[in-house]
Design a protein around this nucleic acid. Sequence first.
DNA 1: GTATGTACCTGCGGGC
DNA 2: TGCCCGCAGGTACATA
Length: 271
Amino acid sequence: MPELPEVETVVRGLQGLVGRRITDVEVRWERTVAVPDVETFVRRLQGRRIEEIKRRGKWVVVRLDGGLFLLIHLRMSGRLVVRWGSATDDRHLRVVLALDDGSRLFFSDPRKFGRMALVEDPEHLLGDLGLEPLDEGFTVKRLRDRLAGRRARLKSLLLDQRVVAGLGNIYADEVLWRAGLHPLRRADRLTEEEVARLHRAIRDVLREAIAGRGTTLRDGRYVGADGRPGGFAPRLAVYRRTAQPCPRCGTPIQRIRVGGRGTHFCPRCQT
DNA sequence: GTATGTACCTGCGGGC
DNA sequence: TGCCCGCAGGTACATA
């Protein structure tokens, strides 16, 4: 699943598109376009110049000339790949953007959960997002403030994009293992030292995953914008490793459900 | 505020 | 080998 490290890897791989102009737009699955209506989406996108491509949480944010923003969320199975040349046999293509250098940006998405939005004010969609964990502003104090008074379970809060933006099911489990914290812990019961451990684990796990260009699971679904899979999967400590030994203490990894999500943890070293 | 359930979707794996 | 069934999960929304 594309989470922060995967989206960051995709965004880095798309930097070559900055300065290109969009010459043609093809929408093959209309519901991929959240807003505006498809006809307006196509008309307003054509002829736009790409000024900047960045990431916010799990969103890809494409700033265009004319004060427009193309926001892209990959959700479960979305994939953004740049290619030159002729057709592709990908039967999951949902949107294709043709560019003025002859390349094309393909948005492929088997499960059709991914969304694109063409808006003037990105804050309408991004405004509720929480702390950006790799920014300088992500401090122990700010994390502590976000968790203060929250009685919900740690795992659920880490998945809440309004608290910290960018974590999904894989990295939430990995972060909690790294921090030695049990997924069912109440957030407001963490000690100062535990919040500091959580803060460090979030930054370390995400940085290492980005260095590994993200996690490609056995399904092979996630790839970067250049089509290469990520290399972080062998370094996952707990995610989808049920009954396998904890890399730290050898205890078999357990799987439970928390808020409807499969949750993997070490019952010995996560307290 | 918190927890749970449903919808959106398709590929995949388990069971037979 | 082939078929059916249910799960996986990010987010929005409804409900308790």
